[in-house]
Simulated scan of single mutants.
Amino acid sequence: MPSNEVMEWVKTIGSLLCSLPVMILLALVIFRKPLRKLIDQFAGTDVKRAKIGPVEIERELGNLAKEGKQAVETMNRLNVLMAESRLLELEITEGMFGSVFSPSQRQQMKEQINELRKLTYKATEGESGEGKNPK
């Protein structure tokens, strides 16, 4: 084999070996035991810290989950409140100005009112267990 062909093979294989995916795969193979230990530590319910050499990671998943749940509940309540406000607006509009709208517009408004009643009923039923009866 001529030396030119050998150099081409070395260049090709060298660039493949130094590519990012290969380096990541190599690092995963080399550090599989410490990485598995870190994952196992974080999977445990009581452990809040994991340490590998000089790197120490602390988790506060309990507080984070609690804050996330509170944020979701607040957003849900805000959405229900906005839907109830919009329902009230539509009911007032229907009562005061319903005769001004065309029959198709009145029908569309009634459909929206009924749909909002159903949705707000479902949402508030889940909160209190009773909810408001849709008309």
Rank of each mutant, 00 (worst) to 15 (best):
M1D: 10
I92V: 15
K51H: 04
L16W: 06
S104G: 01
E127G: 01
R77D: 07
E5L: 11
A43C: 10
R32G: 04
Q105G: 00
I30A: 05
S3A: 13
F42P: 00
S102H: 05
A83K: 12
K118P: 01
L28G: 09
Y121L: 02
D46Q: 11
N76D: 14
L116C: 06
G95C: 03
P134R: 14
F42Q: 05
V22D: 08
L16P: 02
R32M: 11
R49C: 08
G68S: 11
Y121N: 11
K11G: 00
V72P: 03
E8D: 09
E91T: 11
V80R: 11
A123G: 04
L116M: 06
G131N: 07
I30M: 05
Q105M: 09
E111V: 07
K37Y: 15
M1Q: 08
D46E: 15
I52A: 13
G62Q: 08
I57Q: 01
S104A: 12
G129C: 07
Y121C: 13
L88F: 09
A50H: 00
L25K: 01
G62F: 04
L38A: 15
L17C: 03
E127W: 15
K135D: 10
V22L: 11
P103K: 02
R49F: 07
K48A: 03
L61Q: 07
K69V: 01
P34H: 11
I113Q: 01
W9A: 02
V10T: 05
P134H: 07
A123P: 03
L35D: 03
L87F: 04
S128F: 06
S104D: 12
M7F: 05
S85V: 06
N63I: 05
